[in-house]
Amino acid sequence: MWLALVKKEWQESTFRFLVCLALLTIVYVFIYTMMATATPLVVFIGVVVVLLHVFYLFLTLLASLIKEWKEHTSHLWMNLPVPGWKLLSAKVAIGFSQFMILIIYGMVAVDIMLQKLINLSFAGSGIDYTESLNIGLNLYRELSPWIVLMISQGALQLGLAALFIFVFSKVIRPFGWLIAIIITFAANHLLSAVKNTEGYQTITQWVPLLDGQQVHEKVAIHLLQPVEAELNEQIIQTIYLGQVVAEVLFILVVFWMITWLFDQKAEL
């Protein structure tokens, strides 16, 4: 049952996904060819593009849901004798799979760019950055699963926000979406406050997966100016299994609440 829904979502979103893939390819090729002339800026753009992937799930879920309503297929979709979590999770599953393909594609693209950058700096005159670039590339490869994990987490949260905003716009009319956005921001604010409490930290800080201190040292020693290093210390923190579990639980609870709203309160 669920797989049939997934298949339908795949069919529905293929075109959108392929357009994204094509656009990204154009961007990557553009960066790759422009690297020789405007190096730092262009690589920076590449990194930003990868970070922008965090919005993919949000946008594709909204697009899919809006289309469902715009083309009146919602009349059939809402009447399917299937619990809401299956309907919605099918959309999330497809969106998230496409996101994973795109993000891995992006990570590989950045990897290739970094390699070319090393080659370029060999050939280029002036100061030789090769050594630090090599370290940077290794570090990038070492950390890439964590980068993907972080972006995925952000993408999932934004994806949930998209579901919530859309479903709520069908629960309260008009301006349900506006209320939902406000609730989302408020909840987010509240959540980060909770995360900063000692209680939350003691509960979740078990089984460290990635030692932030080590990473910080590696990055700081080889690549950064002192000022940047200080900033960096705040960004790169130790990741605990407990935190990952807490995040997953949080996402599941929010998802369950959204499906409840969808099944009980949402209107055509």
Binding site: L76, M78, G84, F262
Partner: peptide, 22 residues
């Protein structure tokens, strides 16, 4: 009645409610 009552109810819309890509 809720959306989940669809297990007892088949609703036919006046609109073109089928997935056109199928």
């Amino acid at each position: 009645v809720t959306r989940l009552s669809s297990q007892h109810i088949a609703f036919l819309s006046e609109a073109d409610s089928l997935y056109s890509f199928q």
